[in-house]
Amino acid sequence: MQAAFEPTDQQKDEAALWHTRRAGGSLSAAQEDEFENWLNSDRNNRLAFDQMRVLWAQIEDPARRLSTNRPKMSLSRFRSWSPSHRSFAAMAGMAAIVGGIFFLQPDIIGNIQADIVTDHTTVTPIELPDGSVVQLAANSALATDFANGHRDVELLRGQAFFDVVHRNGDPFRVHTGDATIRVVGTRFNVDYLSHQTIVVVEDGAVRVSSNRDADGVLLGPGQQVAVRGDALATSKIEDVNLALTWMKGRLSVRNMRVADLMTRLENYSDGKIVVVGKIAGRSISGSFPTTDIAGSLETVADAIGASVVKTSPWLTVIY
């Protein structure tokens, strides 16, 4: 049973929409009146809106300070921030700053583990020690292991296209959090975004396995597999080139969830992109430039009847 003063999910969604509109400064006088009426019509509406304001402040204030100051803290200074030397309030403040770091740089752990990290705008060609070539998408991270005859790479984040050279039958392996891709010599794309791994083969053959299915599936040209957790779902695609348009500065998609498209566009953005409400689950098709994220967001919004508000340099909301 719901507590007497506990907003429903619908009230939370409505509060998020009202906060977004007000933050963007785009409300007319009539809309301000509508907002006041909504706020006063139900105590839980006001509670939901207050909760949203607190949440937004917790996210944006640390991010704003970090973006301006970019503080660096040595290990010795970090250790000095112990409960015996600082008040609980100070520790809470430090937690907020750490939260801000992960809001601005959620990929910081992956970057530490990686050998190669790309920026938010550049597709980077990389020749690996065995002569294979990888095109690494913007905001992607790759770790490599070519010691002792190994040919192993780990895509920690992002997207990559591999052109693998044949070498005496030695396998070349690509690892993600979900999958292992084993090849001898071939050309294929690996997309490790949206909480799953998607592999598309342009030429040759690859075997893709999940963490619990060591045999996996064998893919040929024009085939793809999506790996989420332990599940592998294979399919044939009409146009392999559609999956490779990111190398030419565009994202071309067919019937993709808006939330998944936003994840990909965020990869090319300096800030977070948040989708609010039911539009996250809607499908969209089109081709969107990665060199003009603001323009791409407006195009998406026009296509699905949504609105875009940039609440700060670090956060854009589409609703």
Rank of each mutant, 00 (worst) to 15 (best):
P83R: 04
I181E: 01
Q113N: 12
G25I: 07
F49E: 02
T124Y: 06
D33I: 00
R43L: 15
V240S: 13
Y268L: 01
A138L: 04
R182L: 06
A179K: 09
G185W: 00
A30V: 03
G229H: 02
K248R: 15
A23I: 00
S74A: 13
N111F: 07
R207Q: 10
A15C: 12
V240H: 13
T118Y: 09
F146V: 03
R167H: 11
A214W: 01
M94W: 14
G99D: 14
V208A: 09
Q113P: 08
A92S: 15
T68M: 13
Q135A: 12
R65M: 12
A280D: 11
D230S: 14
T176D: 00
S287K: 05
L251S: 14
A92K: 13
G222Y: 05
T20F: 00
Y319S: 14
L128R: 04
D119V: 02
H175S: 14
G169Q: 02
D302L: 00
A4L: 15
M256A: 07
W56F: 13
H19F: 11
E298I: 07
T176Q: 05
T291I: 15
D213C: 10
T291V: 14
E36P: 03
T245H: 14
D13H: 11
H175L: 13
L218T: 02
A4D: 14
D9S: 09
V153K: 03
F5Q: 12
I97T: 12
S252L: 10
R77W: 13
M94V: 13
I279F: 06
T20H: 01
V300M: 09
P129L: 01
L55H: 15
T245S: 13
L315F: 05
R157Y: 00
V308R: 07
T291A: 15
N267K: 13
G277D: 05
F288D: 00
I279M: 04
G131P: 10
I59C: 12
K72E: 06
S41W: 12
S140Y: 07
G295Y: 06
F188W: 06
D260P: 06
V153P: 05
A147G: 05
K248T: 15
F146N: 01
V190C: 06
V309M: 09
V208L: 04
T118Q: 02
A226C: 02
T311W: 00
R167E: 12
R53F: 01
T263H: 10
I198P: 00
L218E: 09
G131L: 10
A89F: 11
A160S: 05
N168K: 08
V153A: 03
L251N: 11
V206H: 01
L155H: 08
Q11C: 08
A3I: 09
